[in-house]
């Protein structure tokens, strides 16, 4: 297993380098300059601005300088737009926020999704199954901002339980975590149900029942483990996505996570910030997929890592 991890980490470094190079080329080929603004400045001022932000250097020099700085010092550079902070600092401030929100959203999605999925599968064809799967389908279909709009009207204005936005208190995190988690809950419910139905028809489950085990034991001990596999493989990328922030939920609830940074950096051509976030996302995605593979090996005895 150790060798497996080392090999995968090696691939990760290679992937990061490719991602860095491709992003570098793509970002620089977008028309426009991060320094452009509605008020056009004289060519002389523009030249000085470029020099200050080292954008007057040849692209090749910028490519190697940036790469060297990232590799040797782990320094992602200075943001061109949020000038009082380095990219490392922006990530250090934004990531915990996105992560808190993401973790809560996932916890919520897992609790709700798993229970709904299991119940639906076990009580297949019942009213509970039907209604839960309908809600799940709606949950997948409804975009975040619609759910957000509904919960804001309900729980901020009609029944003032929560503030409409902001960050810093527990009351700030509940509504956005719900909105962010809802579609994931719906996915997880459907995946669990399908996986569960699949497993429940297997021979070993029949054997377990035949041994006289209670339904509860069979489902939680034997069936669930197998049914979780599709959920686990879904969770890897989902965690990476949820941890790096969600544009829509962050914007609606005014949450200082990474999602809005990501989009703004891309739109405003803030090269260093966009690059930093792309690399962060790549790393997270890679690590999460690695963890998924590892947990596969633990959950399913047939899986061998090599």
């Amino acid at each position: 297993m150790g060798w497996f991890i080392i090999k995968r980490l090696g691939w990760m470094l290679l992937t990061l380098w490719v991602v860095y190079s491709v992003s570098f080329v793509l970002m620089r080929s977008v028309p426009g300059s991060p320094l452009s603004a509605e008020r056009k400045v004289s060519p002389e001022i523009e030249q000085n601005l470029k020099r200050r932000y080292r954008l007057d250097q040849p692209l090749g020099v910028q490519y190697w300088d940036d790469l060297r700085r990232i590799v040797l010092h782990g320094d992602l550079g200075a943001s061109l737009k949020i000038q009082d902070f380095s990219v490392n600092e922006i990530i250090a401030q934004g990531f915990p926020v996105s992560a808190s929100l993401g973790i809560l959203a996932l916890a919520f999605a897992l609790t709700l999704g798993l229970s709904a999925g299991i119940i639906s599968a076990v009580r297949r064809g019942s009213l509970a199954d039907f209604s839960m799967m309908t809600i799940a389908t709606i949950g997948i279909a409804l975009p975040n901002f619609v759910i957000a709009g509904i919960v804001i009207i309900l729980f901020v204005f009609l029944w003032p339980l929560f503030p409409p936005g902001g960050w810093g208190r527990i009351s700030n995190i509940i509504l956005p975590a719900f909105c962010l988690g809802a579609p994931y809950a719906a996915y997880i419910a459907r995946l669990t149900r399908t996986g569960m139905l699949d497993v429940l028809s297997q021979d070993y489950i029949r054997t377990a029942f035949a041994k006289g085990l209670s339904e509860r034991t069979v489902i939680l001990r034997h069936a669930l483990r197998g049914a979780l596999l599709p959920v686990v493989s879904f969770l890897g990328p989902a965690i990476a996505g949820v941890l790096t922030g969600s544009l829509v939920v962050e914007k609606i609830f005014g949450i200082p996570g990474l999602g809005v940074h990501f989009v703004n950096a891309a739109l405003q051509l803030d090269y260093p910030l966009a690059m930093g976030l792309v690399l962060l996302y790549t790393t997270l995605l890679y690590v999460m997929n690695l963890l998924v593979d590892l947990s596969y090996a633990i959950l399913d005895p047939r899986v061998k890592l090599h």
Binding site: V156, G165, K251
Partner: peptide
């Protein structure tokens, strides 16, 4: 720091 105007109005109307 709030980017969305709708969020601004929500914050205002709810007294934040």
């Amino acid at each position: 720091a709030v980017e969305s105007y709708v969020t601004m109005l929500n914050l205002y109307e709810s007294g934040v």
